[in-house]
Amino acid sequence: MAGVEVVNVFTCRNAGGNPCPVVVDAAGLDPAGMQEVARQHGHESGFILPAEDEAHDFRFRFFVPNHEMEMCAHATVGALWLLAKHGRLPASPVRIATASGSVAGFVSATENGTVSVEITQPAGRVVPLSPEQAGDVLAALDVSRETLADLPLHNAVTSRVKTLVPMRDPEKLHALVANPVAVEAICRRIGSTGLYPYAIVDGEARVFEARQFPRSSGYPEDAATGIAAAALAFGLLHDRTIAADDRPIRVYQGRAMGSLSEITVRLGFAGDRAIGCLLGGEVAPTTGLAQAIAEDGRQ
C-alpha cells in the first residue's frame, strides 16, 4: 500500500477533530487503490497528485469507503498541513485542482512552528425545502417540528449539497439518533449529500454546534465536516441569523461522538455581496490506534 499518514483535522484545543488518511505521493495509485485506502481506514481520505496544467500546483482526489467525492475540505486542509510539514509547498496561495473546481490554500507558520491552513470555497447557494421534503427529513431524524428553531430547512451548497436543519437548542441536537437507511433515502430524493442539523450557541458571538449524517459514506456520522460548515455559513447569512460581515463563524461538531471539533468560516464580500469564504481549523498528528493502522498500511 502507498505510504499513508493520518492527521486529525479541525481539532479543538489540540484534541478531537476528524481523522484523515492522506497519501502525499499518490501518483502510483489508481482509483481502486485510493478507495481501498479509504475502506481500510474507514475515513475520508485525501490523495495528492501532480498538477495536470500550469494553472495549479497540485491535483487532489478524495475517497470515502463507498465512493469518490468531488471535494473534501478537511482532507484538503490536512493534505496542505502535511505538505507544509514536509517542506513541499510552493509559495502561498497554493493552487489546487479538485473535481469540484479550483481551490486556493493559504498556509502560514508561526515562530513556534504551528502551521495554520485556510482554504477557499465559492459563494454558497441556498434553496429552502418544500413542506413535504422538510417532513421527510424530520422523519429520518425521528424528531417533530417542536424540536426545531423558528427557521426554515435548506439545501445549501458551496461544493457539495448539505441539508441544514435548525434545532431549537444544543441539547436537542445532541439527542438526535438518525436512521442511516432513512437518511440515505431522503438525501437521494432531495439531492443532498448529508443532513446537517445545527443549533445556535451564541448568535452574537457567531458560535454554533452541528452534526453531520452523511448520505452514503460508509459510516453513520462525521466528527467534522468543513464543506457542511461552509454551507451552513451561507444558510445563516441567508436567514439573517448572522450579520453580513467577515467576523469568524465558529462551528463545533463531533461532541455527540466524543470527538469535539472546531471549524472556522470567514465570509468574504464585494460590497454587500458574499463572494465566497475561507474555511480553516487546526491540525494535529494522529496518535494511538489510528496512527498504528496508518503505519501498518506503510508496510
Rank of each mutant, 00 (worst) to 15 (best):
G235S: 15
M1W: 10
A224L: 00
L173T: 02
T114K: 14
L148H: 12
V251H: 00
A185L: 12
P31F: 00
P131V: 02
L236I: 07
T158P: 07
I242M: 13
R125G: 06
N179T: 03
E70W: 02
A175I: 09
S261G: 11
P31H: 04
E111F: 03
V207K: 13
I186W: 05
P152W: 04
T241V: 15
R95Q: 09
A233N: 10
V115G: 09
G254T: 03
P93D: 02
D30W: 05
P65F: 05
G28D: 14
L80H: 13
L279Y: 01
A270Y: 00
N155I: 09
E132L: 13
N179A: 08
A243L: 08
Y219L: 04
A290L: 15
S130M: 14
V64E: 13
L29N: 01
E68I: 06
L267V: 03
A229M: 05
A32M: 07
E68C: 09
E52I: 06
G17K: 07
P31C: 01
T241N: 02
E5Q: 15
T11P: 05
T264D: 06
A233E: 15
H154C: 06
D246A: 15
L80Q: 04
S144V: 05
D202I: 06
C72F: 11
D57I: 01
V265S: 07
D245Y: 01
A205P: 11
A55Y: 03
G194N: 06
A149S: 15
N8T: 07
A73Q: 00
T193M: 12
V6G: 03
V22C: 06
I263E: 00
M257H: 10
V24K: 00
Q40Y: 02
N14D: 14
P285Q: 04
A229F: 02
I190F: 13
A38W: 02
H86Q: 15
A294N: 08
F208V: 01
Q40L: 12
P50K: 14
S217K: 00
E111P: 02
Q40W: 11
G113K: 09
W81R: 13
G258S: 02
L236E: 07
I119C: 09
A27Q: 14
S192C: 12
T158W: 10
V161A: 07
T287A: 12
F47S: 03
T120C: 10
P152F: 04
L236W: 10
T147I: 08
K172L: 14
G135Q: 14
S259Q: 13
D202H: 15
Q133W: 11
G288W: 04
D272P: 03
D53T: 15
T120W: 10
I190E: 13
